[in-house]
Simulated scan of single mutants.
Amino acid sequence: MPGRFWTDQVAQRVMSEFESGTTNEAALEGVARTAIAIANEASADDCHNHRNQSLKECVPNSASPDCRGPVAVCPSKTGESAAETDQRRKFIEISDARAINAPGGLEKVKQTPENRRAAERARSRERAANPGRYPGGLAVGHAPDSIWGPSPESTEYVPITTSLNSAIIWQSNNLYPLHYRATRFKEGTWQGDRCVISVRGNL
């Protein structure tokens, strides 16, 4: 459960429901559980936005918010087209589902020459198997990027422009420390050199 602000928000949400006429204990408990889940997610997003971005490596499986939490996915700093916005949102949708379903999240792994070769082989197989998905020079984008383990072969793919693909790879490489565990993937916006998640102000 997050800090006092969100604790008060949950209490106010349940009280508001009670005052509106809901008196069934099970129903109020359901309202509380939903409010707590939303509050926890908002708290995690806020921690993400204020984490130590200069940290380069985490202790594996650390529970620190500097080493575990959501990943924000921003557009290229030079901007993006409407098509690229759709591609980025599809990338986020697929990556988020994989992070949610991965026990403990997806760990950022060290990129070795063998990992890079495996990623290239996986991209080549995907393009050969589905050439119609990648017209006009679209890249085969790993979703999530292959830096988020366990292996390049275990990922899904999204057609994406080379510039957006490069921007997403750069963010994964430079904005998150080694062994960071991604529990969610979310849409981000640039605030200076930080790719941040929009945090809801209340419940």
Rank of each mutant, 00 (worst) to 15 (best):
M1G: 12
P2H: 06
R4Q: 11
W6Q: 14
V10I: 15
V10Q: 06
V10K: 04
T22P: 01
N24G: 09
A26Y: 07
G30Q: 09
A32N: 04
T34F: 00
I36S: 01
A37L: 08
I38P: 00
S54Y: 00
L55D: 04
C58M: 05
P60C: 03
N61A: 09
A63Q: 09
P70C: 05
A72K: 05
C74Y: 01
T78M: 06
T78F: 02
G79W: 03
S81E: 12
A82G: 07
T85I: 11
D86M: 09
E93G: 07
A97Q: 12
R98L: 14
P103S: 13
G105P: 00
E107K: 10
K110W: 05
N115M: 14
R121N: 11
A122C: 08
N130T: 08
N130V: 04
P135S: 11
G137N: 09
D145Y: 11
D145T: 06
S146M: 11
P150G: 11
P150I: 06
P152C: 13
Y157I: 14
V158Y: 02
I160E: 14
T161Q: 09
T161V: 11
S163W: 04
I169S: 12
W170C: 06
H179F: 05
R184I: 06
Q191H: 05
G192L: 03
R194S: 05
C195K: 08
V196K: 01
S198I: 09
V199K: 03
N202K: 10
L203R: 10
